[in-house]
Design a binder for these strands. Sequence first.
DNA 1: GTTGATTTGAGGTACGTTCCTCATTTATAC
DNA 2: GTATAAATGAGGAACGTACCTCAAATCAAC
Lengths: 348, 348
Amino acid sequence: MSKVVSKPTVHDIARVAKVSLATVDRVLNGRSGVREKTIDKVNAAIRELGYVRDTSAANLARQRQYSFTFVLPEGPSQFVDTIREALRDAYASQIADRVTLNVISVPTHDPHAIVRKLLSLDVSGLDGIALVVPETPQIRDLVARLKRAGVAVIALSSDLPNSERDYFVGVDSVAAGRTSGLLMGKFAPETGEILVVTNSMRARDSLERRLGFDQVMQTSFPQLKVLPTIESFDDPARMEELVYGMLLRKPRLVGLYSMGSGNLAVLRALRRSARSAELSVIVHELTPPTRAGLLSNEIDAVIAQNVGHLVRSALRVLRNLSDNLPIFEAQERIRIEIVMRENLHHPS
Amino acid sequence: MSKVVSKPTVHDIARVAKVSLATVDRVLNGRSGVREKTIDKVNAAIRELGYVRDTSAANLARQRQYSFTFVLPEGPSQFVDTIREALRDAYASQIADRVTLNVISVPTHDPHAIVRKLLSLDVSGLDGIALVVPETPQIRDLVARLKRAGVAVIALSSDLPNSERDYFVGVDSVAAGRTSGLLMGKFAPETGEILVVTNSMRARDSLERRLGFDQVMQTSFPQLKVLPTIESFDDPARMEELVYGMLLRKPRLVGLYSMGSGNLAVLRALRRSARSAELSVIVHELTPPTRAGLLSNEIDAVIAQNVGHLVRSALRVLRNLSDNLPIFEAQERIRIEIVMRENLHHPS
DNA sequence: GTTGATTTGAGGTACGTTCCTCATTTATAC
DNA sequence: GTATAAATGAGGAACGTACCTCAAATCAAC
């Protein structure tokens, strides 16, 4: 085998461009005090050699440390637990190299408390923040304040479209709702009624999912009658009774679409009614209960997002924003996953 | 903000464990000549400090260069093109840092030619090889020979289960077939016939997909009659005529399952027959034609694998095998993706 | 052509790790 | 207790890049 030609280094650039190492460095790192002509010479050498910066060495020398904060809703939530786990995983791999993470919990339904807690945050050394919070005027103000302090701000999972956030990492909820609609239309018989439930329509997610769902149902499956959304207001007992009641009172039901969390209660109602077999059931988020529901054939499909991808994407975006680097949008688009019994990946 | 406590380094370990840097290094890199007691002392210090090796610095110092070869089928193939593209993408990111890639093409259907080409390969500097080839006795011999030469060997996308390959990176074809079956059963009406086509049943993939498909159809949807597989033997014109003929002669068809490539011809036959609307169509691999088929509603679902994930996984596995490191199986399991019109991600 | 500003060069140190060498200490066997 | 082997220490060079200082060269304007 021919001798392995090692990758060109800054020294090679200097030699080929007939300039000093210092000048190469100035060009490479965009420092001032170099003539246009010289910059061109260096760039020509870079192209000629096919030089690519060794990021390992650069990071080592730069001693760049990123400080990011993730703001997650407090209280027990499978989704948040999964995010935490994915953060730990990312930490273990090289994706979170040189970042110090700070995860804080905030009360979900009290925007003032959220803002109070976040205002107490010391922002001086902070490079970026990822927010999983509902959009309110207070939050919008907070985002503006963070931006003024020079902090990169991204909305994670749930967008803050009217704020000054730099980026949104998450799935398109309307498209997710459309996907559910398409599946429901194909799964359910030609005619009948569809029950739609969520814990709260105040959540942007649920609103948008319903919007997408309705778009597809109206245009592609008009014979199916989609009932008004039932809300549990985050009360599992209430959810169970509401769903159970509908299952008793509506004999023409052929489908059930659960847009929010609280699927344990939904499943319980379904089981009590013994109508599971005749209904097409579609829910969101892959969690232990929904996973079990798939395996027991009580749930036909779960619409999920890949949380590992979500978190890795958030870290990449925050890093690039902190360094004023461009974001590779195609890589950061989070897929809408359709999970059914047979493509459910069992945890090792 | 309190002063950022910098991460512990090997020097800190030496200090805490009261040993020299050299000993820490010996323990860290598994070199011999250290007493059990001393190893324990060092490991205790590592745990106490929460030390994690700085991979950037380690890679830099190690100057480890990986040399991998990917063996892909030659000839125009959307799937192979996608792999090539994914390899380029991986190269651009840090995942392929310090690896020199060599991609070679081999004639798909001539095992002897494959082996001849691979035998001419200089194996001396090679760390690993990823094979996308059908399993034959010649290939099995080749794998054994490569293993003897100390090369890490993985099967990519299509397994070589009876060879000595170190690992298989790809989806479980039986599970993919089961997923297709489940979707077909839910999409199609209660009774009718299902047409199954492929380019070649000699390919392990098609065999396994059919197996999984039948499993689900027989147990869960026995009222649907699945017809014997039709083979085109890689001839698009033949494929089109065969499918078109079946569409004319079989009025009770309610579904079409295409297990192999050559979906352009399948779609053409479907269009000519004008029976597209009454059939549930499920195909494999997301390619320009299948993508177009989804958008035009001629295809109901595409079963796909994430090729980017596939390639990144292959690189990680090859790297770990070369270094005798364990493989994090959960991360390397390739998902079976269900893609429909509404969760199709449009290229930016 | 001199002045003053701008551009370039030379050389060094640092990042955290790996991987040497050689000297010294400690344990083991008789 | 001595001979020998095994374990440990001390120190340094290297990987490729970033970033610093200070001197030297080049340029522009008059």
